[in-house]
C-alpha cells in the first residue's frame, strides 16, 4: 500500500469506528429500554427501572469488550492457520 492509500484506509477505519460507537449507543438504549421499562404509570423511570438500566448498560459494555477479546483470539488463530497453510 502506498502512504496515500494507507491514509485513505485509516480514514475509512476511523469513520467506521465512529459509526460503530454511535450505533452502539443507540443499540444499548434500545436493548436496555426494551428489557427494563415495565410500566408507563409515570413519565420518569422508577427506582427499579433505573437500577435495571444501569446494570444492563454496564453488562452490555463488559460483554462487548469480552466479545471483542474472543473475536480477536479467533481471528488471530485463523490468520495463524492460514499462514501455516501457505507455508505447506
Amino acid at each position: 500500500m502506498t502512504p496515500v492509500q494507507q491514509q485513505d484506509f485509516l480514514q475509512h477505519l476511523e469513520s467506521q469506528q465512529r459509526k460503530d460507537s454511535l450505533a452502539m449507543y443507540n443499540n444499548l438504549v434500545f436493548r436496555c429500554f426494551d428489557e427494563c421499562s415495565k410500566s408507563f404509570r409515570s413519565k420518569r423511570l422508577d427506582d427499579g427501572e433505573t437500577k435495571c438500566i444501569n446494570v444492563c448498560a454496564e453488562k452490555f459494555i463488559k460483554l462487548t469488550s469480552r466479545v471483542a477479546l474472543r473475536f480477536q483470539d479467533i481471528q488471530q488463530q485463523k490468520a495463524k492457520d492460514e499462514a501455516a497453510g501457505v507455508q505447506r
Binding site: N27, V55, C56, L63, V67
Partner: peptide, 30 residues
C-alpha cells in the same frame, strides 16, 4: 471487509448479550 466485520461484530455482540444475560438486577459485573 472492514464494514463487513464491523457489522458482524455489532450483530454478534447484540445477539450474545440477548442470549447470555438473563437477569438485570444485582451485580453489574458479568
Amino acid at each position: 471487509e472492514v464494514d463487513m466485520y464491523s457489522d458482524l461484530f455489532t450483530k454478534m455482540s447484540g445477539l450474545c448479550f440477548k442470549k447470555c444475560v438473563v437477569k438485570m438486577h444485582g451485580e453489574s459485573d458479568l
